[in-house]
Amino acid sequence: MSETDKKIADCYLGIDLGSSYTKFVVVGNDGTILFKEVIATLSRKRDQFEKNMDEIARRFDIQKTCSTGYGRDSYSGDMQKTELICASAGVSAIVDCHKSVIDIGGEDIKIIESDPNGSVVQFYMNDKCSAGTGAFITEIAEKAELEIGEMDEFARRSNSERMINSFCTVFAKTEILGWKFKGVPIEDIARGIYLSIVDRIAKMPIPGGLDIYLCGGVIRFHPYLRDLLAEKIAEKITIVPDPQFIVALGAAELSRKSNSH
């Protein structure tokens, strides 16, 4: 049996080249997820990307590839779509209703009104400032001497309503420093960071009356944000399965659908 015969036929690849991580998803011709992988976008080991592509090529007969994310132009696949289009398509592959999608990514927050077919009805992104995004959490947590992996757990133990006022990430770090001087408990600091993010999201124009689905890398590591958002926004809010891979899934789905047209 030749190498080609071992491959799974008729597959579609989505690559989400995000600001922090690059995600790969392969779907079959019925939309089933067959493969997913994540690597650091700017890893020193630049051959990681090629290794993944080699593995995908070895195992799957890829018909079409769609790249997305800020680095979408760096890969010359069959098609390129923005991460908003792909987030809408990815969530719609899981829930086929009229809905809102909130994607909290490494450098931005996107709010998307998505129709049952996965098309974007309208969208809103935070302004140029990255406050409230993954990069913001990483910076602030470092100043607070919090491990990213323990933030969620610490925050759940607090009832504090203290939050960071500053929009500016650098000034927010200064606020955290002030909290530490005052001896604010680490649990309250963790919750305060989340509250400031939720406050930022709650001020964005989220379409009313629609169920909300959360996706993106941040929600994967900080699921407590969902609980706080539900408190603030009072809509039905669900974290989609594998939230970090939703945009790559959407890209794979768009390449699959484009082939069937």
Partner: peptide, 30 residues
Amino acid sequence: IDGDLNDLRFFSDGQSRTRLETFIEQLKAK
């Protein structure tokens, strides 16, 4: 979209491109 007439420190190419391409795609789909 955020930007400026002359001061390009207030304009982000990547952020704007994502918004514009999504918007155009949204209009095409409709």
